[in-house]
Amino acid sequence: MVIVRTIEELQEAKKVLLGSIGFVPTMGALHHGHLSLIRQARKENEHLVVSIFVNPTQFLEGEDLDSYPRKDEADIKICELAGVDILFMPTIDQMYERDELCIGAPAIKGYVLEGEKRPGHFDGMLQVVMKLLNLSGASRAYFGKKDAQQLALIMQMVKNYFMDVEIIPCEIVRDDNGLALSSRNIYLDADEKQRALALSRSLKRATKLVMAGELNVEAIKKVMLNVLKDADEVEYVAIVDREFNALKEVEIGNTIILVAAWVGKPRLIDNLWI
């Protein structure tokens, strides 16, 4: 594995990569969710590039940019063992100039749900993902379905800007109790981890309701909110189609049920694709 920290080093290292390149962009503090993306990319491509970069432009004022978990030594070992060919770990100065062109999230899809709660977040996310996709030379790039709205916007960006890369959605990875894996889970103590399971439990209840024939969105949301009482604060429960339009009834094969809630220090998200 080659570790590169500058764009010039990355470009030089890529010269020997002949064939398809799988790319997994991350912010580090790697867990089994990231590892599942890395393994799938390794399996489906001749070469594998992973990036670790805590992107400042997608953090809002007051969010945890400075305290975001950083585990560079452990992350390097994980990537090495997983068969990564190039690990790109740039500095902020490598990725950004002082006065840059900006990419804006779409006016509707980019400012509902996560976009409403974290205005400007998606602008910064799309900006850095476009940079990383261009730098990596990826044939395919791998993103988890847990960040469903992020995934949808990245796919739209690739389509709208005619980018020559295939975006591969990957399934959510959970711990043995059902909690969706996240780097921010490190903030949870034992009691909070138990209470955080309310998110996945609410989605399981929604699944059972749909399987029993209940398709009414308001009825499903009411049950979910009751399950979510263990959370400190529920920001939203939403049931939308794949384009993030609100639904009155669940459409099998075209629905995402999403939840965002605070438990202790971290803000957690989870979702279910139906």
Rank of each mutant, 00 (worst) to 15 (best):
S200W: 05
V259A: 03
I103P: 01
K71F: 09
L179K: 01
N254C: 09
K193R: 15
Q58L: 07
L133F: 13
F23L: 04
L268I: 08
D176T: 12
F59G: 05
I3D: 00
D93N: 15
D99N: 13
N134H: 12
L30C: 03
A105M: 06
D270G: 04
V210M: 14
E214I: 13
Q94N: 14
E114P: 01
E61K: 15
R5F: 00
E44M: 14
A180E: 01
C170T: 13
I7A: 00
L272Q: 09
G124T: 07
D230T: 11
M224L: 06
N160F: 03
P106I: 10
K145V: 05
A246F: 11
S67H: 12
E100T: 05
G253P: 08
S182Q: 08
E80H: 11
D241S: 07
A152V: 15
E46P: 01
V84S: 06
V16D: 10
T207A: 13
I186L: 13
M157I: 09
I78M: 10
T57W: 02
I103D: 00
P119M: 06
Y161E: 11
G83H: 06
G213L: 05
D64Q: 09
Q94M: 11
G83C: 09
E73N: 11
D64P: 02
T6R: 01
E100P: 01
D164T: 08
R5T: 15
T255P: 09
E63L: 04
Q127P: 00
L197E: 06
S202K: 05
I7P: 00
G120Q: 03
A74L: 12
G124R: 04
L30E: 04
G19L: 11
P69F: 10
L153D: 09
I103R: 00
S51A: 10
V50H: 03
A107V: 15
R195N: 07
D99V: 13
A148W: 11
K43A: 15
E214N: 11
D232Y: 07
K71N: 13
E9L: 03
N271M: 05
K193A: 06
R242N: 12
V250Y: 07
M125D: 00
G144V: 04
N45W: 02
D164A: 10
I78E: 01
V54S: 10
V158W: 01
Q150A: 07
K208C: 02
V234H: 06
D189P: 05
D72Y: 14
G264Y: 08
S36M: 03
G33S: 08
E8K: 14
V54F: 09
E114A: 04
M130Y: 03
